[in-house]
Design a protein around this nucleic acid. Structure first.
Length: 557
RNA sequence: UACCCGAUGGUGUAAUGGUAGCACUUCGGUUUUUGGUACCGUCAGUCUAGGUUCGAAUCCUAGUCGGGUAACCA
């Protein structure tokens, strides 16, 4: 990290630094990460997690994990569990501070009663359609609900009966009495409670009225003594309401601060759209390695540290931009380059027969596990008469900038010998099936005694020692940078990249990979970073996922 | 059409009234048993117009452009 990057501080931390200096909240810093358990967490949530937990760390405060479960319609325990697992995997710890908004339902109910008593809330009988109509619009003034002036006692009675289940869904609601002509729509008598005869994943059937987000969030923050309630930009217009409720209640007043959510090229990020991809079988599940979900990235092989570094790098602002996916990949490569052991793997095999190497012979060649990390040691790879090389490492009629194998040309087999191609064997259709080559036993050290230089260095595996594997090569899910920016009438899902997954069924791996553990990451030399799939890989049938390719400078120079 | 927010190289950001800096990208080069890594160099920016000031990316006004907002979703 550069000096200026280390010293620069985002605007949220600047606000908090000020507050701490001014002894606001006694100098305490308490943040929270408050997802709704209605889906899996994605890379955008990672930005928020890193911000909230990171601030708690920086200021010696705490960060709570709060599940914002006020709408039983879309929420499930499966999501709660996945959220907890993903936050932990990212490397953060909420300690004892795990909460649910539903923990506060009783308190929030009592506060609603208080607002009714203070004449600041009323039970409304309007339908959603009527509410919408009476609310007016940006240039249309609102009209008061005919139920707005009910007496306190009538409101109290009705609200109690709402809770007791006397009314059907949607028949009544509790609304805050604010201002039906506010230029801010959120202040035109917003709903506080709606009737939903629905089972809740935690409170069961105890409640048939549920508080809305606006009427829950600030109060939950207040109960938990949150000092800084950090959320995304689309809640800016809700802040006056957040402040109104807290002021009306006269309780601890956390400060809401909004920042820009993360937008990544070539991907969609809304939970609704991710759900559509899962439910429509466009992907194999929430943890499909093409998904921007934390579980998908994990399965893809992205290290948690790389995600954290990426989040630190992109910073926090109020500017709604679009971050290039390539930047995320950069951090993944940087991390893996230092940590992943190298291995040889052939995705698309082409057989090579070394005519001057005896049939029954084989020998072990030494290979460095990680040139970036001496402590990773060395391993041995078998070498024999028949090898596999990557089909694209041979060209019968190579262009000028092709440095690999070609008829009459000599290349170096990495960790092996110099290899020269003498003959090309083809089948009846003209497809190349085999290369007849010779090797130079004098080049065992990778250098020729006569000082000649090969045109390039390629990877290989010994055919009779190789193990078979399936390798899944992933590409972007959407070829367009702005994934869901489609013309009118076009379904955004139609732009899914048909080659987002390419399965290589006939991959050949060096034998050392046989006991690679689930999730283990390797650099397949010259190809990219690959990890053992944590779901489908079995000892008898290994499955690898391509995490990310190596940077490719072929086009240049 | 109302309100809120924003705008710094291609991208992400820093500079908080005092030299526009950093990273990625681009392009070029060095090293290299990975066309990887590392290293060196290089191109490139304050939305516009006024104003305040000795001095403005920063403050003010207006405009332009972009985003958000009219669920009993969060």
């Amino acid at each position: 990290m550069s000096k200026s990057e280390a010293e620069s501080v985002d605007f949220v931390r600047q606000i908090i630094t000020q507050d701490v200096a001014n002894k606001k909240n006694g100098g305490a810093v308490v943040t929270r990460f408050p997802p709704e358990p209605n889906g899996y967490l994605h890379i955008g949530h990672a930005k928020s997690i890193c911000l909230n937990f990171g601030i708690a760390e920086d200021f010696g405060g705490e960060c709570h994990l709060r599940l914002d479960d006020t709408n039983p319609e879309k929420e499930e325990v499966e999501y709660v569990e996945s959220i907890k697992a993903d936050v932990r995997w990212l490397g953060f710890d909420w300690g004892e501070n795990q909460f649910f908004a539903s923990d506060y339902f009783e308190q929030i109910y009592e506060w609603a009663v208080k607002l009714i008593q203070d004449g600041k809330a009323y039970v409304c009988d309007q339908t959603t359609e009527e509410v919408r109509e009476y609310r007016g619009g940006w240039n249309k003034e609102g009209k008061n609900s005919p139920y707005r002036d009910r007496s306190v006692s009538e409101n109290l009675d009705l609200f109690q009966r709402m809770r007791d289940g006397e009314f059907k869904d949607g028949e009544k609601s509790l609304r805050a009495k604010i201002d039906m002509n506010s230029p801010n729509m959120n202040l035109r008598d917003p709903a506080m409670y709606r009737i939903r005869h629905q089972h809740h994943h935690r409170t069961g059937d105890k409640w048939c009225i549920y508080p809305t987000y606006d009427w829950t969030h600030g109060q939950s923050d207040s109960i938990e003594n949150i000092t800084h309630s950090i959320c995304t930009l689309e809640f800016e217009n809700h802040r006056p309401l957040y402040d109104w409720y807290i002021a009306a209640l006269g309780i601890h007043h956390p400060q809401q601060i909004e920042f820009a959510r993360l937008n990544l090229t070539h991907t969609v990020m809304s939970k609704r759209k991710l759900l559509e991809l899962v439910e429509g079988d466009y992907v194999s599940g929430w943890d499909d390695p093409r998904m921007p979900t934390i579980s998908g990235l994990r399965r893809r092989g992205y290290p948690a540290a790389a995600i954290r570094e990426f989040c630190a790098h992109i910073g926090v602002t109020k500017f709604n931009g679009m971050t290039d996916l390539a930047l995320l990949e950069l951090y993944v490569r940087n991390n893996l380059n230092k940590t992943a052991n190298r291995a040889m793997a052939i995705l698309d095999p082409l057989k090579v027969v070394i005519e001057n190497y005896s049939e029954n012979k084989s020998e072990m060649r030494k290979a460095v596990n990680n040139p970036e990390d001496e402590s990773a040691g060395i391993r041995e790879m078998p070498f024999s008469r028949e090898l596999y090389i990557e089909r694209e490492d041979f060209m019968e009629a190579p262009p000028k900038k092709f440095f690999r194998l070609a008829p009459g040309r000599e290349v170096r087999l990495k960790n092996g010998f110099f290899l020269k191609c003498n003959d090309v064997i083809k089948d009846d259709d003209g497809n190349i099936t085999e290369l007849r080559c010779t090797y130079d036993p004098e080049t065992a050290g990778g250098k020729a005694p006569d000082g000649r230089k090969p045109s390039g260095t390629i990877h290989w595996v010994s055919a009779k020692h190789a193990i078979d594997a399936e390798v899944r090569v992933y590409n972007v899910l959407f070829e367009k940078e702005k994934a869901d920016d489609v013309p009118e009438g076009v379904d955004w899902k139609e732009t899914i990249n048909p080659s987002s997954l390419v399965v290589m069924n006939n991959a050949k791996l060096e034998p050392a990979l046989a006991d690679a553990e689930s999730g283990a990451c390797f650099q397949f030399e010259r190809l990219g970073y690959f990890c053992v799939d944590n779901r489908d890989s079995k000892p008898e049938k290994l499955v690898f996922n391509r995490t990310v390719s190596l940077r490719d400078n072929k086009k240049k120079k």
